[in-house]
């Protein structure tokens, strides 16, 4: 059965927190409802669960890749073309260190950015329940569940004090 979404728009932070409590009480699991804000609130402001992420692993992997690429590039090119310049050693560590360092940092940063996008669950091809007013200061709570539980969700949100409720987006499974 296809999933349907409903979105309630709120203005007051405390009301949102209560609404989330009511949803929880009505038996919706944390994967079924979602909070949408236009601003980063301090974590747990609405009593929501702390998102778990593994972003810190990304730069390390990236740094390792960048380091290896840098090392291979610097040693490889010098060994492939071993010309003596200025009496400097063919595999002189200080210049290699500079290139390897830049490679390491580049790897770390590129991987971090990929990691940020991946861990943010972006890109999101299907927007789901959304309203442009969220970026205007409204706080949205969406519930995504089977079609027959939509009515209940809508009721809970309305009772909690949603200013506006929209529904009808379909989320493909």
């Amino acid at each position: 059965m296809a999933l349907r979404s409903v979105l309630g728009l709120f203005t007051d932070e405390n009301v949102v927190a209560d609404a989330m409590d009511s949803l929880r009480a009505a038996g919706y699991t944390s994967s079924e409802y979602e909070l949408l804000t236009g601003v980063p609130y301090p974590e747990g402001t609405f009593g929501e669960e702390e998102p778990v992420h593994k972003l810190y692993r990304w730069p390390l992997v990236g740094a390792a890749c960048g380091f290896i690429v840098g090392l291979v590039l610097t040693t490889g090119t010098q060994l492939a073309y071993p010309l003596v310049t200025g009496g400097k050693p063919i595999l002189g560590i200080p210049p290699m260190a500079i290139i390897i360092y830049e490679g390491t940092m580049l790897g770390a940063i590129v991987f971090t950015v990929i990691g940020i996008i991946f861990e943010s669950r972006l890109p999101r091809l299907f927007m789901g329940a959304y309203d442009p007013r969220i970026t205007e200061g409204y706080i949205g709570v969406t519930v995504t569940a089977e079609e027959d539980r939509m009515g209940q969700a809508e009721r809970v949100l309305r009772e909690a004090g949603a200013e506006d409720i929209t529904r009808g987006w379909e989320t493909p499974r």
Binding site: Y81, L83, V84, T85, G86, G87, K88
Partner: peptide
């Protein structure tokens, strides 16, 4: 023998 001009060339245009 240890020419300062050589190592600074980015393209190995000069070497010993």
């Amino acid at each position: 023998g240890d020419a300062p001009c050589e190592p600074v060339c980015p393209v190995f245009a000069t070497y010993r």
